[in-house]
Every structure is written in C-alpha cells, then in structure tokens.
Write a protein that binds this DNA or RNA. Structure first.
Lengths: 197, 197
DNA sequence: GACAGAAAAGAACGACCGTGCTAATTTTGT
DNA sequence: ACAAAATTAGCACGGTCGTTCTTTTCTGTC
C-alpha cells in the first residue's frame, strides 16, 4: 500500500468520526484538513469533489460496521445466540467506536429528504442491515428456537426500532437507564417470537 | 396583533418547514429570506441572532405539535382509546404537516452531539413527550385496561421506538409497508401490556 | 394628513465554503 | 543517485454564511 492510500485511509477515518458528530453535511473540507494536519488542497486532491469524499467516508463506515457487528455475529452459533450477537454487536458499535454515536442513525435523519448518491448509498446499507437482521432471525426459526410463523421482516423492523430508541435515550437524553430499557425491550421482542408452548 | 408579529409568525412557519428538511443547522437566513420574500437584514431584525431564530422555530414546532397531537389525544376518552389516539396523532403529525417528516426526530439525531440552548430545548420537549406517553398509558392502567404492574416508562420507551422505526422505514427507505408494520408493532406492544387473563 | 415609531431594505464586513490551477516537495522504481 | 511519478502545498476565484450599520418605507395614532 502506497503512501497515498495510507493518508487517504487516515483522512477517511477522521471524516467518519466528524460526520458522526456533525453529519455528512456539516463535514467540511477545511476543518477535516486541520484535523489531519494537511492543506485543504492537498486533502482535496485525494477526492475530486465533496460528494466523493462523503461517499467514500460512508463506505469506510460500512466496512467498519461489518468488522464490528456483522462478522462477529456470523461467528456466533446459529439461532437465538446469533440474534443476540447481532444485537449486542450493535450496542457495542453504538457507544464504542464513534463518539458521535451510530453514524448511520445520524445520516438516516439527515439524508431522508435529500436525494442524491449519498442518500442512495445509505439506503442500500440500511436495507442490507434490516435484511441481515431478518436473515439471522431466520436461522433461529430454522433451529426451532423461534416460532415457525414468525414474520422475519416485521421482527427486524421492531428490533431496529429498539435500537433507534436506544440511540435516542442514551445519546440525546443521556438517560442512564437507556441500556437497561433497551435490553428489556429486546428480550420482550425475543419472548414474543418464541414458540408458543 | 401588529404587522411585525404577523410576518414573524410567517417566517417561523417557513423556518420550521425548512428545518424539518435540512435540519436546524442547514437552516440559513439567506435562503429563509428568499422563501418569505424579504431581505436578509429585514428578516434578521426580527431575531437578533441565528440561535434565537432556531430557538423560536423550535418553540413554534412545539406549539404545532401540541395542537396536532397532544390536544386531540386529551380529547379522547381515558384508557386504551387515548393511548391509541396519541399514537394515531403522531402518525398524522409525521406525514401530514411537514413534508420533511417529524422535525423532532430529525433534530434529535442532529443535535445529540451539539451542546447549546437549542439542544437543551429539544431535550425538554422530548422528555415531556415521553412522559406524556407514559402518563396516558397510566390512565389505561387506572381504567383496568392495561396491566397494573406495567412499567409506564418502559412502555413509553418501546412505543417511541416504534415511532422512530416508522420514520426510518417510511421516510428513508420509502417502504410502502411501513404503515402496516408500524401499526402491527404498536398492537403487539398493546397486547403485551394487557392484563393477563 | 402630519408625525413618531416600527418594520424592512441596502450595502458592506470578515470568515469560511468548495473547487480549480500551478508550483514545490516527497516518494518510488531503477 | 537520478528521473519519473505521485503527493502535498500555495494561492486565488466566486459564493454564501451570520452579523452590523445606515437609510428608506411603511403603520398606526392624534
């Protein structure tokens, strides 16, 4: 890996960090250049537009998400254990890596009304994410640990709602009971998805 | 009401509209002035800083929220009917008034990392909102329509999560099944909160 | 209808924005 | 060690930002 790729990676890491706090729109090239201690034009040369910078930052965030959440979850045994791993992985992701919280949650609210390539990329990520949750829940159904007639997409929708509620309670409200509430809500969803008897 | 108050109200209405789409940070005085067909300085004279403009726009949004959601809900009969009215009112609010979706959802993600008076005002609103949901659920408990041992704050937390999931699915993903999923998730929460036998 | 006060406009400011262009510097392959 | 190539810096541009100051226009009252 050449020197260029290296600094580019460092730039994108910092960009993801910043965007998680002030959003993709608030991410400015000048500030970013200050943070990584480069000239504005030197940094700009790596991307050829702000949109490219944003797109590659989003892609970088996606890769990190895969590393922190997806891959570890797939390492867990199929079934409910894996569903739990997905959820725990997300909690880890939410308050570990980025001090600005989950960048996708922030971006979802920011970009939902702003058409363009960036929004499209985010939508792809979010669809994949919900589909992943549904698929993992599917393995639990296949193992007989969750109800056979469970609506997987509905389950993913509701689990995702709990995640969003967590983000809201913990990051905005600074509610110290957020974690407990979140876990309880998740267990409640799991309980409702278990086979009847 | 003098002429000043009138145009100020018109400005704030437009400001709320814009902020619901591009966020409070993206709300710029120049663009706002164009929208209401005023000069930038003429508009600015009504507020004496951008922060004041933002704060008063948030207050305006709060008033509209009270009109659209809170008051109609309080007109519904105590108990589960009122809980339903709160939820339906929010759905109405979410995709009626503002074409940018619920401005508070957008602001929550935007401001969760940006300390200041604006964030503080939002936090107050959101706390009130969650408390309101909990209180209304409490009336249903008092009427014997919901479990006596129901954790009201937990219930409000989970209902709120469903609202956030709705916003995500409908506004970002443009999922046409969002409404159905949302209603089903809400009914599921209600079912879980009903008295046992 | 004149007058006082409120409301709106006009012009300008310093700062930062994204983006090009050119020059200097550093890295790389030989 | 040297030339070629890749990377970074410097500088300038047109625009928009929030804000201030001064001047003009409008409103409501006697």
């Amino acid at each position: 890996m050449g020197k260029g790729e290296l600094t580019k990676a460092a730039i994108l890491d910092e960009a993801v960090q910043i965007a998680s706090r002030v959003g993709f729109g608030g991410l400015s090239i000048g500030q970013l250049a200050d943070r990584v201690e480069m000239s504005k034009s030197g940094l700009f040369a790596h991307f050829r537009s702000k949109e490219q910078l944003q797109l590659q930052a989003m892609e970088r965030a996606r890769q990190r998400f895969v590393d922190v959440v997806i891959r570890p979850a797939l390492a867990a045994p199929r079934g409910i254990a894996r569903v739990r791993a997905v959820f725990d992985g997300w909690l880890e992701w939410a308050h570990q890596a980025l001090q600005g919280g989950c960048i996708f949650v922030a971006a979802a609210a920011e970009l939902d009304d702003q058409p363009g390539a960036l929004r499209d990329a985010l939508v792809r990520n979010e669809r994949d994410w919900l589909e992943f949750i549904a698929t993992v829940a599917g393995t639990a159904v296949a193992e007989g640990e969750l109800r056979g007639d469970l609506d997987l997409e509905q389950f993913a929708f509701e689990v995702h709602g709990v995640m969003l509620a967590h983000h809201h309670a913990s990051r905005l409200l600074h509610d110290e009971r957020a974690e407990a509430r979140t876990l309880r809500a998740f267990e409640s969803l799991l309980a409702g998805a278990r086979p009847s008897t």
